[in-house]
Structures are given as C-alpha cells and as structure tokens.
Design a binder for these strands. Structure first.
Lengths: 235, 235
DNA sequence: CCGCAATTCAAACAGGCGTTTAAAACTAGT
DNA sequence: ACTAGTTTTAAACGCCTGTTTGAATTGCGG
C-alpha cells in the first residue's frame, strides 16, 4: 500500500517528475479512449488498454482507481478536446442564413466523419449518446447543449422569429439526425450504395451540400400539412 | 452425450412432445431477444437469460449449441416477426405522393417507437445495424433492402423520373435518419425538450407529420445550391 | 552513498463467464 | 413394469475479467 490511487498520489515530488507522471496518465488515457470507442465499456479490457499503452496492468488502478473512473476520465477528456476544436467558422453579418447552415453542417460532418487520429473521440462521445452511462450524462449534456443552440439560432433566422419552440426543436433534430446518421450507420450506407457512388457522392462535402439544401427547403415552411384523408384526392 | 445440439435432437419422438420442445425453445428465444436487445451480445449473460426463461443454464447449449447461435436465431426471429408486421398500408392509384410518404413515415415510426411488448425486436435489429456482427449481416441486408426500396419509389414519384441515383439515395437516407434518430437518441431528446413539450409534440403522430412535411419540401428540388462563396453576398 | 518515496512489475486473487459432464428425472412404446 | 430415448439438473471445468499485493526498481534530496 504505497499510495492512494488517483487522488493525490504525489506529495512533494518535483514538478519535473510531475510532467513525467502526467505523460503516463495521458498515454493510458489515449489508448483507453481509442479502445473504449470501438469496443464499448464492457468489451474493452484493462489488459488490452495497458498492453497498447505499454504499461503494467496495475497502472490503471494505480493512476485512475478503477476501470470506470478511467472511462469517465476518457470521456471527459474527449469532450474537452473536441469542444476546443468545435468552434464553427466565424461568420459576418453579411453571411446568408443558408451559408451559415452549410458551414454548420460541414463542420459537424467533418468532426464526425474525418479519419484523422482524433476521430475516435467523436465515436466515444457518440457511444455515450446512444447508450449513456449515468456517470457521463452531465458531460454529454454540457457538450451538446450549446452546440445545438447554435443550430437553433440559424433555424430561427431562417424561418422567422415567431416560430414555435417545438417546431424549432423538431427541425433542429431533423438536421442533426441526418448528420449523425452517416457516422452511426456507415455499414447500412455501404450496403445500399456502390463503392463508386460512395466515392463520388458520399464524401463530407457532397453530403453537407445535400443535407443543407434538403433541410433549408424543408424548414422554410411552418404551415401545417393539408391534413390528408386517404380516400378523396383526385389531383 | 445423449444428443447432438441444436440440429436434429429428436429422432422419432411423438409430434406431441415436439411442440413441447418448441415451446421451450421459443421461451428461451424470447427472453434472450429481450436481454440481447437492451444489453448487447457481450453484456448479456447466458445465466440471466436462462433464469428469466426459467430453464437450466445448460439449456442454451442443449437447444442452440452455443450463445452465438442463440443470438443469431434471436435476430433472425426478430427480423421475421417484424417483417410480417411490416406491411405498409395499401394505397390506391389515387393516393397522393405526400400521403404515401406520410404513411411510410408513420408506419416506420410506429414500429420504432411503440412501447408494446414486441418493441425489443426493433431494438435488437437496430443494434445489429449500428454494430453489425458478421453473422447477421446478411439477415439485416435482406430485411432492410426491400423496405428502403419502397421509400425510394415514393421519392422517385415525388421528384420525377430523371433524378440521379445518388440524389435518390441521399434523400432516402435523409428520411430514414430522421426516423431512426428518435429511437436511438431518446435520451438526447429528453435533454433538449421539456417533458410537457415532449408529451404534446413528440409523439409518433406529430413526429410523422413533421418529418413528412420537412422531407417532402426538401426533396422537391434537385437543383444545386447557388454555390455560396463566403465573402460577397449583399442580399 | 544512503534513505525514502514514487513507480513499476510479476504474480496471484476472487468472481463471473460460457460450456461440459454425468447422473437423475421424465416420457413414451411394448 | 421394463426399457430406450429425451430432457433436466447440479456441479464442475477452464478461461478471462478487474483488482490487489508485496516485492523490485527507479529517481532524487540529503
């Protein structure tokens, strides 16, 4: 029993070793995030995480207490890093509403679909959204709310100020859902679309264009349906 | 070694006992499906399944061979039962395109969001869509393709015959994604929307109306965006 | 160079997992 | 009632999991 886990395991160590300590922590956190992202909390094993981080099995418990705390820290870390890369492109007062929407959708899709090394963070957060663990609910909440707020502002601008709250929300979800779809349901897209078509028309840029166009038209209307009754209708 | 597992474990038993045997199989299959649906393959345990089905732990291996075969059978079973409840409302030649779309979306949402005892089947299939196991890929494929085809027909009818294939697919995904969203992301909706608003405006019927209206407008256009360049644009 | 705290390590632990086993219980046909 | 085949059962198996442990190693101020 050398030390308390994860709390203040260091007493009066030099600041130099402090950074060393943090490097190990960060290395574990990274590998853990990657593995949690594509296996989930349950299926990911501490042993594999430690193997990939090139540390002993006991390191997780020494640095983080237990597996769950490691997971929470990984999610928290992913959220913070993504939040810092979140900022949407700035727009001026001259930027049209449709352009703002395109920028929003493009940025969102880039974060979701890019294949650079930081992409696993988004997968990890998505996993938390689809099946939240009580521990991380708050984290996700804080991460998602402001982002959603930006979208709602754009929509309000598009449809006018006197739109009802629920229409605003429904429309917002319609936009969000189309973007998230391509991350969560990649396999389904692969089934329905040939590789060539996928290559040409399902890259981030083209998808952003389609979603923007589709949604911008869809939202520019808050009147109700003509209440279709299924019998009489002769064009 | 009394019997081969899962193949033809009965040789010349009476047809009466045959039904008994099938009853046990079906009971296990049901409980397994329910548990697989909300825990996933890995997290679901054979022991819990057997406990809920009120059979011995060994029953799974006796009747199905192993856990994975049980899972595959459960998915297959869910697919078949849902497929039989799938049929969209029949429409006549007088039914308008928008009505067809509304019917399609309504049916889809009902299957996804209803809370009757058969709902776990949809969750199980959704899980397979989000993280497919190689074993069930084909099953999902066969289940999803024809359903998607019906939607594509509606869209083709709405936008005219000379629409390009990729626009058709993109639009189809836009509709599908909005529906699936409300099943997969229930928690997110709960965060962003007050219970009262949810009660009033996020029930199946209202969502179907919104999605139909939103999508119908969105798809009624295949022209390209005005190619927004972010600098010059003075309304 | 010593001593002390921080860190690493191999080994072991208890518990849960899917699966197997062999005996018991049950169900006909004769 | 006996027997042969089917189903159920409790117990055990081997494996893998997260975690703990105590000794070995390291790093550093004195």
């Amino acid at each position: 029993m050398g030390v308390e886990p994860s709390k203040g395991a260091v007493s009066l160590a030099a600041t130099k070793t402090m950074t060393q300590r943090d490097e190990v922590r960060k290395r574990i956190l990274m590998r853990a995030g990657e593995i949690f992202a594509d296996r989930g909390f349950q299926s990911a094993t501490v042993r594999e995480i430690c193997q990939r981080a090139e540390v002993n099995v006991a390191a997780v418990n020494y640095y983080f207490g237990d597996k769950e705390c490691l997971y929470i820290d990984a999610v928290k870390d992913a959220r913070e890093l993504i939040a810092s890369r979140w900022p949407l492109p700035e727009w001026t007062r001259e930027t049209s509403t449709e352009q703002k929407l395109l920028m929003f959708v493009t940025t969102f899709l880039q974060r979701l679909l890019n294949t650079d090394p930081s992409n696993w963070r988004m997968k990890l957060l998505l996993r938390e959204i689809l099946e939240p663990s009580r521990a991380c609910e708050e984290i996700i909440q804080e991460s998602f709310r402001p982002f959603f707020g930006v979208l709602l502002d754009i929509i309000r601008e598009a449809v006018g100020p006197n739109v009802s709250e629920h229409q605003l929300h429904q429309t917002g979800f319609s936009v969000i859902s189309q973007c998230v779809f391509y991350l969560a349901n990649r396999r389904v897209v692969g089934i329905m679309v040939t590789p060539a078509e996928r290559e040409q028309h399902f890259q981030t840029e083209m998808l952003a264009k389609h979603i923007t166009q589709f949604s911008f038209l869809g939202m520019k209307n808050s009147r109700s349906l003509p209440e279709p009754n299924p019998t009489s209708e002769t064009s």
